[in-house]
């Protein structure tokens, strides 16, 4: 079994390595600073990593702040809307409309109310992270198993108590999906927001490199963004598995993702 595993491990490396080599060959053939290969990008990473790591710190802090603001506002709101079905179903298209506003169009409006500082960027991030959160929470609490409501009624829980003790835990698995999407979009949008209302952060660094035609440095920054995204997504999934162990235990017998 373990031999099989390791052989599969190697075979998994084939595709990425082939792609990297293909990229390097294309870059050699293009031989222009505008199309750097993985080697030049690696050199840029080596030269610039202290600077990049420092800038990405600002970005992560903003992304985290935006995400938590979104979670605090949107999860309760989603549960509430899911409970008040009539209101929820009427308001659903509003979410669809707000979901397709591009951040570069939202930023100028936010700036009017919140200026160009951290508050504005956090507001934009919270907006972007809030959409998947509220959509999933709403969907989860709307499609709650009817049994759960009956249990609540037999326990004589009040409305608020029902929402906290029954609806919230029962919706958690689906909220977790929303959390994963929200974390991803918080990271994505924090970079974009920094590029549009720039003071510091990896978005600013990236933009400065691009506007000065330092493509390899820009790709180095992008490589760091990817790595951070990968790590954060992985952490969120681990956390989710740990916190929602009861859910995974009950579904694990059915399938193994």
């Amino acid at each position: 079994m373990s031999i099989l595993r390791s052989r599969q491990g190697y075979s998994a490396l084939v595709l990425p390595v082939v792609l990297l080599l293909a990229w390097q060959v294309l870059a050699w053939r293009a031989s222009t600073p505008l199309f750097p290969g993985p080697w030049q990008v690696a050199v840029s990473i080596w030269r610039l990593y202290p600077q990049i790591v420092g800038q990405i710190g600002y970005t992560l802090m903003r992304a985290a702040a935006g995400f938590f603001v979104a979670a605090i506002v949107m999860v309760p709101l989603g549960i509430l809307l899911g409970r008040l079905k009539a209101v929820g179903s009427v308001l659903e298209p509003i979410l669809d409309m707000l979901a397709t506003l591009p951040p570069p169009a939202v930023v100028p409006i936010v700036m009017l109310f919140a200026g160009t500082g951290d508050a504005a960027k956090i507001a934009v991030i919270a907006y972007a992270a809030g959409i998947p959160l509220i959509m999933n929470t709403y969907e989860a609490s709307k499609t709650l198993h009817p049994m759960a409501t009956l249990v609540a009624r037999s326990l004589r829980l009040r409305r608020l108590e029902t929402m906290v003790f029954i609806d919230l835990p029962a919706s958690l698995p689906m909220i977790a999906t929303g959390v994963r999407l929200a974390v991803a979009s918080a990271l994505l949008v924090s970079v974009t927001a920094e590029m549009l209302l720039a003071t510091n952060g990896i978005g600013v660094f990236l933009q400065r490199q691009q506007e000065n035609f330092q493509i390899a440095n820009g790709l180095a920054a992008i490589a760091f963004i990817s790595m951070v995204g990968l790590i954060v997504n992985d952490l969120v999934q681990r956390l989710e598995r740990r916190l929602l162990f009861w859910h995974y235990r009950s579904t694990e017998t059915q399938n193994d993702r």
Partner: peptide, 29 residues
């Protein structure tokens, strides 16, 4: 399955890149 395993890290790495970051460089290429 070996394709899936090879593709998984690529997907995980490419997915977090914001489009706004890619556009200026993509224009060059």
């Amino acid at each position: 399955p070996s394709f899936r395993r090879g593709f998984a890290p690529i997907a995980a790495l490419v997915q977090p890149i914001p489009p706004a970051a890619l556009v200026p460089m993509a224009v060059f290429m």
